[in-house]
Amino acid sequence: MADALSKLLDERDWLLADGATGTNLFNMGLSSGDAPEFWNVDHPDRIAALYDGAVKAGSDLFLTNTFGGNASRLKLHDAQSRVHELNKAGAEIGRNIADKADHPVIVAGSVGPTGEIMAPMGSLTHEIAVEMFHEQAEGLKAGGADVLWLETISAIEEFVAAAEAFKRADMPWCGTMSFDTAGRTMMGITSKDFAKKAAKIDHAPIAIGANCGTGASDLLRTIQGFTDAKPPYPLIAKGNAGIPKYHDGHIHYDGTPELMADYAVLARDSGARIIGGCCGTTPHHLQLMRKALESRPSGPRPSHDDITSALGGFSSESDGTDGGGPTRAARRGRRRA
């Protein structure tokens, strides 16, 4: 049988994903440096409110509060023995919210990077990475996640290890990388590189794409890099709500709900099928994104000038797919504060 996400993609031209996890949890009182995953057990009502906020704003899919739920990340909080417990709890809360929704909603089990460097550049072996991802995947599966959602990855090696782990867990999955250095990941991968390598991975993903990174403009240029590479998968766009700025002891994102509504439409017209927000994106942003996607007709692929005029300039001259290096670009266009 087809998985729930694939069924929904077969029925719809686009799906609205959720917004930020960290931003919204900080607004609920999470302290910097604390493990958000502990709240799945200690404050399940707040995690339910996080998920419910996305659903009521119109999301067709939301990610669980388990981004840092692998043993390597939880070890920083002396909680490496709680991987299964915390992931299962995060997914169970999500399953309960999704099952009560008035429209079909996908529970996507968030799986973030290990935080370690893969061999041969680092000490994390393929085998250990697979074990860590598999342990987390089994917890999310036990909690009722529909799909696993690998996100903010920088290295292809880690992506491959996660795919093997998800195969062991017999779970469908999606995967996004974060392109934050002139259209490249921290490990130098471009959207073109990623699309080619993802097509060769055993236990293929349902969809691939980009999340986080710098601003929404850069992310859309990356999505267009994906479409040029013609990957055999639907594309995911999950961009930050503008650019982060430090103000009064806190990080704020300058992307307004109106800007993110424009971003959502430009993402759809650039080729993305699953569209959401990342850092800084609140339910209010999602409401306007949903409204824009439903009310504005599809159009031709936007030019780079169309993107920068609506969302602000790119952070670099090249997205890496042309072989260009990380040369910073002059800011163009307008940005709504």
Results as ranks from 00 to 15, higher is better:
157 E>I: 01
268 R>D: 06
319 D>R: 15
53 G>F: 01
166 F>I: 04
111 V>D: 05
300 P>D: 10
14 W>T: 13
149 W>C: 15
4 A>H: 05
99 D>C: 14
219 L>P: 13
15 L>H: 11
55 V>S: 09
30 L>W: 08
272 A>T: 03
14 W>M: 07
52 D>R: 15
172 P>M: 06
61 L>I: 04
5 L>A: 04
95 R>F: 05
225 G>F: 00
233 Y>W: 14
112 G>K: 00
226 F>E: 03
6 S>W: 01
300 P>I: 04
325 G>C: 04
266 L>W: 07
287 Q>S: 14
198 A>D: 12
294 E>P: 00
27 N>C: 12
122 G>P: 13
288 L>P: 01
125 T>C: 07
231 P>T: 03
244 P>N: 11
300 P>M: 03
102 D>V: 08
209 G>M: 00
190 T>I: 08
278 C>W: 02
160 V>E: 14
263 Y>F: 10
301 R>Q: 10
136 Q>N: 09
150 L>S: 15
190 T>N: 07
224 Q>P: 12
6 S>H: 05
140 L>P: 02
309 S>H: 10
125 T>F: 07
91 A>T: 03
200 K>L: 11
92 E>F: 01
160 V>D: 10
209 G>D: 03
89 A>Q: 11
154 S>M: 07
301 R>Y: 02
307 I>Q: 12
336 R>L: 07
15 L>P: 11
71 A>R: 15
235 L>S: 08
59 S>C: 02
212 C>T: 07
313 G>F: 05
64 T>P: 12
173 W>H: 14
183 G>M: 04
115 G>S: 08
16 L>K: 04
303 S>N: 00
328 R>T: 11
269 D>N: 15
232 P>K: 12
216 A>M: 12
247 H>W: 01
158 E>Q: 11
177 M>C: 11
273 R>C: 03
327 T>K: 12
274 I>L: 10
255 G>P: 05
88 K>M: 10
176 T>W: 04
105 V>F: 04
313 G>V: 04
1 M>G: 15
50 L>K: 02
4 A>K: 15
157 E>N: 08
98 A>G: 07
298 S>T: 00
44 P>S: 15
191 S>Y: 09
124 L>F: 04
107 V>Q: 09
8 L>S: 08
179 F>P: 03
132 M>C: 10
88 K>H: 12
117 I>P: 09
282 T>P: 02
241 A>H: 11
285 H>E: 03
303 S>T: 13
120 P>H: 15
